[in-house]
Amino acid sequence: MNMVIQRIFGTPVPAASESGAGKQLPIDEIRRCLHGTLHDCKDMRAQRMIYKINTAQTPVDLWLLRSDLHQCIAQTHSQSVAAERINSLVHVFEGWLPASQLAKI
């Protein structure tokens, strides 16, 4: 897993003991959190996002869906609501990604 993160982000990943790996949420819990951001988005784009969330293999794959999630939520609501919802997800990825990558939008 560390090699995948290193390849994607080009940064070394701390060892499990340094990254707080004991605090990592399971991938199913991360999926539930992402689904929660779409709870009131009912159009076809939201259905496609739910499919992408359900088929993502890793927490990194889920992290990379943030932009698509933002667009989907912004279409139903506004950009500020979308940014607020996406930013509320940062903590669920702690331990899965380097802290430097956990930036809010």
Rank of each mutant, 00 (worst) to 15 (best):
G22M: 07
Q6E: 12
M44C: 00
I53M: 05
W96D: 05
L64T: 09
R45A: 10
S100A: 13
S67K: 08
T55H: 11
P98I: 02
T58K: 00
S100E: 13
T37P: 03
L38P: 06
A99Q: 11
H91S: 12
I50Q: 11
Q47W: 14
G22L: 02
A46Y: 03
F93W: 07
V90T: 14
H91E: 10
Y51V: 14
M49P: 05
L38Q: 06
D28S: 14
R66W: 03
T37V: 12
M44T: 12
R85H: 04
A46Q: 06
D40I: 01
A21R: 15
L102T: 13
F9R: 13
K42S: 13
V13G: 00
I73A: 01
G36R: 00
S67T: 05
I30C: 07
Y51L: 15
V90Q: 01
K104I: 06
W63Q: 03
Q47M: 07
D61G: 09
N87M: 01
G22N: 10
I27F: 03
A46M: 04
I8H: 06
I27Q: 04
W96Y: 06
E94K: 09
C72H: 05
T11E: 15
T55K: 13
H70L: 09
F93P: 06
D28C: 06
R31P: 04
Q6N: 12
L89P: 07
T76K: 15
A103D: 09
E18C: 03
R32S: 14
V81C: 09
I5W: 00
L102V: 10
E94V: 09
H91M: 08
Y51H: 08
K23S: 07
H77Y: 13
F93I: 11
G22T: 14
A15F: 05
R85A: 08
Y51N: 15
S80R: 07
L38D: 09
V4I: 15
S19D: 01
G22P: 00
A56T: 03
S78Y: 12
Q6V: 00
V81T: 15
D43E: 02
L25D: 13
S67R: 09
S17M: 12
I27V: 13
L34H: 07
A16S: 14
D28R: 06
K52S: 11
N2S: 01
G22V: 07
A15T: 10
G36M: 02
W96K: 04
S80M: 10
A16W: 01
E29N: 09
S100D: 11
L65V: 13
V81N: 10
V90F: 03
L25P: 04
H91Y: 09
E84A: 10
A56W: 04
G10D: 11
